[in-house]
Design a protein around this nucleic acid. Sequence first.
DNA 1: AGAAAATCCTGGTGGC
DNA 2: TGCCACCAGGATTTTC
Length: 271
Amino acid sequence: MPELPEVEVTRRSFAHAIENATVQAVRLGKPLRWPLGCDPDRLPGRRVRSVGRRGKYLLLQFDQGVLLVHLGMSGSLRFAPVLPAAGAHDHFDLVTTQGTLRLHDPRRFGAVVYVDSLADPVAHKLLGRLGPEPLSDAFDVTGFQARLKRHQSAIKSVLLAGEAVVGVGNIYASEALFLAGIRPTVAAARLSRTRVARLHAAIVKVLGQAVELGGSTLRDFSSASGQAGYFQLQTMVYGRAGLPCHVCASPVRLIKQGQRSTFYCATCQKP
DNA sequence: AGAAAATCCTGGTGGC
DNA sequence: TGCCACCAGGATTTTC
């Protein structure tokens, strides 16, 4: 399940290789979350300028227009000079002079959307409400606390919503809250400045570390070059319900928050 | 208005 | 072994 680190690892794994390539063809498979938003025949001839990222969206910047790619829950990208024939779950191919970029996504929660520019209303609808990037200077304690103050709901749910900070998904939300010693059920607005600072540091640390380690393979994540990630070897609480906490040995608890699983240690994480 | 629930989808798993 | 109910979850849409 790709969260920000997986998306960033994917970006780094093919950004350089696809830069300056010219699009030759587009192949569409089954429908994804949203329609492409343009006639696929408009894309051949365009040149790939760069591959950026905003939250969990990859941004393929052409000399004219931008392709937004979201991996959803089960999506992964491959980029190689030659790829085998498309399988049942390969729903998008961008064939270029330097290789083919392919989206493989069994559950089809992912999306590939074309916009003429990031100022386009469609792009604004998808990207406009996103909070600051956690691994950039735009993510600071003061601003983070100000945004948390606006939400009375549980801090775990607020992190997932992506308005206070973008890119923290279900796995890393549990992990960051454990690192910060904060109970996931605490109302976001009630966190003290000290605890917000701890959470801020924890998010930066856990996401940064996950990027360094190549993302998570809790399901079957691999980068666009096929390299698996290693983060799953080091989760402190996620997926460890009933197992002893690595710090204090009390059993890790599992609760549901907004239909999502949350893992925490009742001893290490204070309400 | 803000928060919770429903929704999309399919592979994997556990029970019988 | 087969069948089935159920779970996983990002982000939008709908309901409360």
